[in-house]
Amino acid sequence: MINILEVILVLILLTVLLSLGSTRLMALVRIMVLQGVLVSLIPLFLKSHEILTFGSVVFYLAMVIIKGILIPALLYRAVKHVSIQREIEPFVGYHASIVAGLAVLLAAVFMANSLKLTLPEGRELILVCAVTTMASGFFLMLARKKAITQVIGYLMLENGIYLIGNALTQHHHNLYIVEFGVLLDLLVAVMVMGIILNNINHAFDDVDTTLLGQLKD
């Protein structure tokens, strides 16, 4: 019997690795779609969660719509609008990024082993996966120059936080209300990013955030 939860978690790790190595922004947006949907599917496969209340069904649907359709659509528009295709000259190169991803995973496994949290049955992998996703999101924000990749890093960070919430909680209602608030914040953030990106593009003919450091009249 295939353990679906583990397969989803491993696929999330796959998307994390691919996002660290992808040079094209469009590919990155597609990877984020996959990751968003996978992450929002996780609670359905947790053993101790009862899932078939009306509220939770609405919540899962909203999660998938926001993470899988709404946010990617905004990102897609932003990428199209500023007509940039790839990240040129990142702060940290792509090979180094992939190796950093490996190091992050190693650290995450070490952390999950030595924290010795009393997690519910079969959730150790979620914790590893969550820490990896979070740290890689951080890394992506630090290592890339374009504003849009930094926002994608932020999205990954949020996915990681959501996974941690999933790993730690037993009763899900409170978590999901908080999580929903965060999700709305995120949505607004991505919208604002779209507007700012547009303005940066107007002012500098490029969306490189390092240009913002050079202030002059």
Binding site: E6, V10, L13, L14, L17, L18, G21, Y94, H95, I98, V99, G101, L102, L105, L106, V109, F110, A112, N113, E124, L125, V128
Partner: peptide, 21 residues
């Protein structure tokens, strides 16, 4: 980079066998 990604994928799996699975 493409080939290195494939290596990293398997190495992910190896790391996971050390700790969790």
């Amino acid at each position: 980079k493409f080939i290195l990604t494939s290596f990293a994928l398997v190495f992910f799996a190896v790391i996971l066998t050390m700790g969790v699975l």
